[in-house]
């Protein structure tokens, strides 16, 4: 501290180093001070209006009564209000009518995406691309039919087709020969197809029957698609599908969603599945 200030009249604090390096005491610019006090006023006002101070039990609530969860709930209400007009229409319409209305269809597809992800995607894949043992929903081949009403029925009541295990009924050569004919998409070319009664379920032309859910054996889609398709066909013929008498039978069951989901949700899902690519 220099008692005799060598730099008088310039408003320095008296802190001087290296002869002439000194600290001045100039006021900050006025705009800076305005901003400074404005920030403090802002902070105090915020503390009064909004929750701010933690206490031993709880916190100050603020006079606005604002909470995060309230804001969230208001947001949800707003979204529901927007959806309401569509949801009301959907409740009053059949799945087929929804399909015919472009605007409702777009809304349904957008809103059913979550439903599909929660209820269907685990087996049928996120895009309806199927999975090992589970049918593809995006193609144009349907076991029970691809009409919108049928899809509603399938989701509501579930499906469980049955194919008898033929391991004890047919000779191995007969299974071999049938499997080869099926692999070529020409099941009727093998006389066993008619003689051994395959036509009872798969039809005289081998195209399956949608009433029973029996597979079309003449098209390019495999119900049980595997790398070695011939082996897969033989396995299916030998052990059947859902045949309780054969412990090695293929299990293929679509559960019923009639009690799990609301009617409107099923309608939406049916429209969604119909529009995945194969609806008829």
């Amino acid at each position: 501290m220099a008692d005799n200030n060598p730099f008088p009249g310039e408003n320095n604090t008296g802190h001087i180093w290296d002869d002439d390096l000194r600290e001045l005491d100039n006021p900050p610019p006025r705009w800076w001070m305005i901003a400074f006090w404005a920030s403090i006023i802002w902070w105090v006002t915020y503390g009064i209006l909004y929750p701010m101070w933690p206490g031993m039990k709880g916190y100050t609530k603020g006079i606005m009564g604002w909470t995060q969860i309230k804001e969230y709930q208001e947001g949800v209400k707003e979204v529901e209000a927007v959806r309401a007009k569509y949801e009301e229409k959907i409740a009053a319409m059949s799945a087929k009518d929804i399909l015919a209305d472009e605007e409702l269809k777009s809304y349904t597809i957008a809103s059913a995406k979550v439903l599909f992800g929660d209820n269907c995607a685990a087996c049928h894949g996120g895009g309806g691309q199927g999975g090992p043992g589970f049918p593809v929903l995006a193609d144009d081949d349907w076991l029970y039919g691809g009409k919108i009403e049928t899809i509603v029925q399938t989701i509501t009541g579930g499906r469980k087709g049955v194919m008898t295990a033929h391991g004890k009924i047919l000779k191995p050569e007969e299974i071999d020969s049938l499997a080869k004919a099926v692999l070529d998409h020409k099941p009727t070319s093998d006389p066993n197809f008619t003689a051994k009664g395959c036509i009872a379920c798969h039809g005289p032309d081998g195209k399956g029957m949608q009433v029973l859910g029996s597979a079309n054996l003449t098209d390019a889609i495999w119900r049980f698609k595997e790398d070695d398709q011939l082996a897969s066909i033989k396995y299916t013929i030998t052990h059947g599908v859902n045949d309780a008498t054969d412990p090695k039978t293929r299990v293929a069951e679509m559960p019923a969603f009639g009690k799990r989901l609301s009617k409107d949700d099923i309608k939406k899902l049916a429209v969604y599945v119909h529009e995945l690519g194969g609806g008829q």
Partner: peptide, 18 residues
């Protein structure tokens, strides 16, 4: 282009993209 599935095989042996 739809990403899941990238393509779907159809019953007539054609390939479908969405």
């Amino acid at each position: 282009h739809d990403r899941q599935p990238l393509y779907v095989l159809q019953s007539d042996g054609s390939v479908q993209n969405k």
